[in-house]
Design a protein around this nucleic acid. Structure first.
Length: 612
DNA sequence: TAATCTTTAAACAGCC
DNA sequence: AGGCTGTTTAAAGATT
């Protein structure tokens, strides 16, 4: 959406070559605001420029410079987010206000034309943003980290236009042109003031660094002035770093004494100060409103998660991904509807959208449930898909993978080129793939050995160098029925969840943009981002869907990457040996010793184990 | 509630 | 002797 302003200016050079009058400065500045390459818009602007061609005047020039400064500051903001239409609206209203205050009628005409021009620009930008917003909501456009975000929040939760209009009616009605003409404040910083009255929070904080650093959200009161200088010099909210912090002032005051003089003389109790106070009050009000909303949202989230995750045991460290069964399920259920809206009913159940997608959610990062719970068995989550998609996460975060030792061992073996690993190589795979297994080695290594010996599906093969372990896929499949393939309701649920994923992704991102949550990268955090989580959720569900729908297709994308990479070693076998059906079953044949150890008595072992 | 599965811990044996 | 590998048993918790 956003284009470099330099190229815009260059491309429109012919349109602004008429000189350096104030009007042309304005136009050039305005042209820069157009963030589209649309030739129609360019020609439109050129046409407008020729129509206007306003005569220069000193005051108009001053005004123009102010607006240019204002726009330049806006551009700094736009590097993070596109121009907020509300902001422009606010600027224009300020513009009207100061027009009335400081300029004669014939001078106002010039600026009024510029205002109309600004409004045209504003309309175009609003259309652009609406279009982008529409695309985003349809899932056709995804905002990437580092990409400027749409200014959804200021529009949605900031001061609504009617409120602003009412406010500025009050403000402007208290001023007459005569009063303003006698008031020598033409150097007032429009940018600071106008932003202060626009949508609160980050926008105003960015544009007015003084206000942000000092928390300038207070109003001037005579009572404060009566305090001692000592108190003031350290704490007066309107004075800091030798500068008057009155919104839009920034006058340099060498000491606190001169600041007080300045305060009494320049910001005395008059209509202008009163109006600015009202604006500031609105800002504070909006910020408080926003804070209250976010607090409520946070409370609802915490309440929701607490209720859903009240398990008898909770281990804070290390994180246990198996607990994400419950948590990710609840999060997934809540997300599609609760995220875009204020969660007034956080615990209201929604259609179960997942059957255990391997989604690592933020809830699972902060809420740890019971130690041992696996979803690979009952939810038929493809382990290879999960590991592949959350590989970075598993490698960096000490979370227990939600799969049994048997499944992990099998995965390790199947990932190897020869489909066989020594015990030590299995160990290495565990530690390489999972940060969780880089501690308590004695425990889990013992478990690995125990599983290798216990499960019939793991076959020890004597090698020249020693012994290696292979997987008897047939035995492995025996251990677990393919419940999902024959369960229409299960498939339906997954499909339902799949449809939620796109809006969920958008909702997550919108939520992040809305709350100014920075997009941490996996590399920097070692944990997946919310966006990645949403993406992972979608991919996981895609994988589940593909897996569900594949049912034996050799080219099924639901197959594990490893399986896809080694078609020679993989052949399709009936899922259930007893029924000679079940196309999901895959049997490895590479380097498989024919002498399976069938001595171990597992024949009566119930059929229940992880597969893909 | 019972059966089953998984994990954890531990003992033990064989080998290097 | 000590470490590694492999087997087996038992108990507890989780799951079905």
């Amino acid at each position: 959406m956003m284009q470099e302003s330099g190229t815009e200016t260059k491309s429109n050079g012919s349109a602004i070559q008429n000189g350096a009058s104030g009007g042309n400065h304005l136009l050039e500045c305005s042209l820069r605001e157009v963030r589209s390459n649309d030739a129609l818009q360019v020609s439109y602007l050129q046409e407008k420029h020729e129509v206007f061609n306003p005569p220069p005047s000193p005051k108009a020039f001053v005004l123009a410079r102010q607006r240019i400064d204002c726009h330049q500051k806006l551009k700094q903001v736009e590097t993070r987010s596109p121009v907020n239409p509300l902001l422009y609206s606010c600027i224009n209203k300020h513009f009207n206000f100061y027009l009335l205050c400081f300029f004669q009628p014939q001078q106002q005409q010039v600026a009024t034309q510029q205002l109309a021009f600004q409004q045209q620009l504003l309309q175009m930008q609003q259309l652009q943003q609406q279009h982008l917003l529409s695309l985003q909501r349809q899932g056709l456009l995804t905002i990437q980290p580092g990409q400027p975000t749409l200014p959804l929040q200021p529009l949605a939760q900031g001061m609504i236009p009617t409120e602003l209009q009412q406010l500025w009616k009050e403000v402007t009605s208290s001023h007459t042109a005569e009063e303003a003409a006698s008031n020598n404040h033409s150097s007032l910083d429009l940018s600071t003031t106008c932003v202060s009255s626009s949508a609160p929070s980050k926008t105003s904080l960015i544009i007015n660094p003084h206000a942000s650093t000092n928390g300038q959200l207070s109003v001037h009161t005579p009572k404060r002035e009566s305090l001692s200088h000592e108190e003031h010099s350290h704490s007066h909210p309107l004075y800091g770093h030798g500068v008057c912090k009155w919104p839009g002032c920034e006058a340099v005051c060498e000491d606190f004494q001169s600041f007080l003089k300045h305060l009494n003389s320049e910001h005395a109790l008059d209509d202008r100060s009163t109006a600015q106070c009202r604006v500031q009050m609105q800002v504070v009000q909006q910020l408080e409103l926003q804070l209250a909303k976010d607090k409520e949202r946070l409370q609802a989230m915490m309440t929701h998660l607490h209720v859903k995750s009240t398990e008898p045991k909770a281990t804070p460290q290390p994180l246990n991904l198996v607990s994400s069964v419950t948590l990710s399920k609840t999060a997934s259920e809540a997300s599609p509807q609760s995220l875009p809206h204020t969660p007034t009913t956080p615990t209201a159940p929604i259609t179960p959208v997942t059957q255990g997608p391997s989604v690592i959610t933020t809830t699972s990062m902060h809420n740890v449930g019971p130690i041992r719970r696996r979803y690979s068995d009952k939810y038929n989550v493809p382990i290879s898909s999960d590991i592949a998609q959350n590989q970075e996460f598993y490698k960096n975060a000490e979370v227990r993978p939600p799969f049994t030792y048997a499944s992990l061992i099998r995965q390790a073996i199947l990932e190897s080129p020869e489909k066989q690993l020594t015990l030590n190589e299995i160990y290495n795979w565990f530690t390489r793939m999972f940060a969780y297994f880089r501690r308590n080695a004695a425990t889990w290594k013992n478990a690995v050995r125990h599983n290798l010996s216990l499960h019939k599906c793991f076959v020890r093969v004597e090698n020249v160098k020693g012994a290696v372990w292979t997987v008897d896929e047939l035995e492995f499949q025996k251990r677990r029925p393919q419940k999902i393939s024959g369960n229409p309701s299960l498939i339906k649920n997954i499909q339902t969840s799949h449809t939620y994923c796109t809006p969920l992704n958008a909702a997550l991102q919108a939520s992040m943009a809305e709350n100014s949550i920075p997009l941490y990268t996996t590399a920097s955090m070692g944990n997946p981002t919310l966006g990645n989580l949403a993406s992972a959720m979608r991919e996981e569900l895609n994988g589940a869907m593909e897996h569900t729908n594949s049912n034996g297709s050799d080219s099924s994308p639901g197959r594990s990457p490893m399986q896809a990479m080694h078609p020679v070693h993989v052949k399709e076998e009936p899922l259930d040996p007893d029924e000679n059906e079940g196309p999901l079953s895959l049997v490895t044949t590479a380097n498989h010793s024919p002498d399976f150890d069938h001595d171990r008595d597992y024949e009566d072992e119930p059929v229940n184990e992880d597969i893909e």
